[in-house]
Amino acid sequence: MSAGHRRLDIEEVGDVTVAKFVDKKILDEGNIQIIGNQLFSLVEEEGRQKIVLDFSNVEYLSSAALGKLITMDKKVKAAKGKLRLCSVRPDIYEVFAITKLNKLFDMRENQEQALEGM
């Protein structure tokens, strides 16, 4: 599996980086590893500070994926940046709510709202 195989669509909106997950299912461990590395490199290598993660495509994710998002949140906070999540469908939002991660993450309804005041 190539590490360069992009699992995120990256778009610049002003000074904000919008990273959209390509996959419908974020389950496979190898895939989660790649996604994690691509997310972390946005902060650690590219020094991006304002990041929106767009979940429009995501229909399933597991607790292993949540682990990567938590790590991402820590890295962004350590870099004094801002991280927001958007367009999380109701089933998936429930996964965040059950695990109370909706309190940890700044979650917005859609991309427009996520970009507001970023």
């Binding site: 607790s63 938590i70 991660l101 940890l104």
Partner: peptide, 21 residues
């Protein structure tokens, strides 16, 4: 308990919690 404030940003325990829910 992954939802305790001190555990919120740690991995682990969420899988079982999701199953139960």
């Amino acid at each position: 308990d992954p939802t305790d404030d001190e555990n919120l940003d740690k991995p682990g325990g969420r899988g079982i919690m999701l199953m139960r829910s």
